[in-house]
Design a protein around this nucleic acid. Structure first.
Lengths: 204, 204
DNA sequence: TCTCATCGCTAGCAGTGCTAGAACCTCTGG
DNA sequence: CCAGAGGTTCTAGCACTGCTAGCGATGAGA
């Protein structure tokens, strides 16, 4: 085989890999769009295959199963949440904690299906012993940074977990219609006031 | 028809209704047991029918569909949670808030499937405009009572919503393995300390 | 041009929630 | 005591789900 032919083979392989990667992302995007438009119940392998204009088995050549597709959507969602939290700079007079809380709740409110895949559906995303995706660590890191200014003497990680849990609880209970919309503002004020240090009580 | 015959008819009807009610409860119990033993995925109409020793259509003569069965389990779960919260009296030196929080989290930890049906699966249980089941109101009422001692000047309902949301967030994120078990105690201490009034800072 | 491997497709499986209509059983009126 | 009415339960099936075996076409290499 000539040298140029060898390069040709390599470049053809490259093109194939590239096309494959594009289709991979196409599937993830289609799943997310379908879920956001009609809910995860509407995301069946048949409808998804139709949307990406391939047959069902193609999905299984990219992902081990439907769960793996949802997981991929969730991981990219974590990346997006991390970005939003990073860009959520407090406006004048506003605490960083509040800016983060508002950005988090806004994300959960505006992208309920995506939020569901990330934190509600127990798709045993690898949190525990196995490798936690970087996107998730990034998002948690942003929350840590937002909590840091009010930590005082308290354990930073545990305090961030409390902050996150509270936001998550509010987000999911709101989504389920369990909380009264009339209390939205008061609730956030109460939470932020409680988590902030006592000497910051003239708050936010 | 004689008078005694009329009474006989009535008593037969009563017996039938009683048996029907028993079977109704039998289905609910079987669904809960199956879910608690193997998770809600294992609760299929076929397996449930097999467990109660009737055919599938019988289920549909009692409930509109599978969702209605889950809802019935959830409502009875709310009743149980309300009872546990009511009975959760603080031991000496412990705040009522802490006793309630611990009882709530214990329930979520020990009965994850039941908790799931109650607060995670969006079975559009009638919370909003429609009639909220009394069991749920009772449970929320217990939380309100636990929060009342620390309300200070704050809105009691909104503060209870924050308390509930935080507990719910901790419960669900823990269940999903998102929080570090090592922080369990610290987390609860931080939450209770934050929600309690500043002057109670020498806390709990 | 022929061979072969890779790829995507058709068709199908087992299982899901749910339901129409047959089968059965009990009670009633003659 | 018996025929039939009424209600109840079951059998069998539909349309759908996630998933996969195995065939057929397409394109690369000799």
């Amino acid at each position: 085989m000539s040298s140029s032919a060898r390069f040709l083979v390599v470049s053809i392989q490259n093109r194939r890999e590239r096309e494959r990667a594009e289709r991979h992302q196409l599937i993830i995007d289609a799943a997310r769009e379908l879920a956001e438009a009609e809910g995860w119940d509407a995301v069946t392998t048949r409808r998804l295959a139709e949307k990406v204009e391939y047959s069902q088995p193609v999905l299984y050549s990219h992902f081990k199963g439907k769960d793996a597709i949802v997981r991929a959507v969730a991981i990219q969602g974590c990346g997006e949440l991390a970005r939003l939290l990073r860009e959520a700079r407090p406006s004048r007079g506003e605490s960083r904690l509040r800016a983060a809380a508002e950005a988090y709740l806004k994300f959960a409110r505006e992208r309920p299906a995506l939020y569901d895949a990330m934190f509600v559906q127990q798709s045993d995303l690898p949190w525990g012993t196995e490798e936690v995706p970087q996107e998730l660590l990034d998002a948690f890191g942003e929350l840590v940074a937002a909590v840091e200014p009010v930590r005082g003497e308290r354990d930073l990680e545990a305090l961030t977990e409390v902050f996150w849990s509270s936001l998550h609880g509010i987000a999911t209970l709101m989504q389920g219609g369990r909380l009264r919309p009339a209390h939205d503002e008061t609730r956030l004020d109460l939470l932020l006031g409680a988590l902030s240090l006592a000497q910051d009580e003239d708050r936010l």
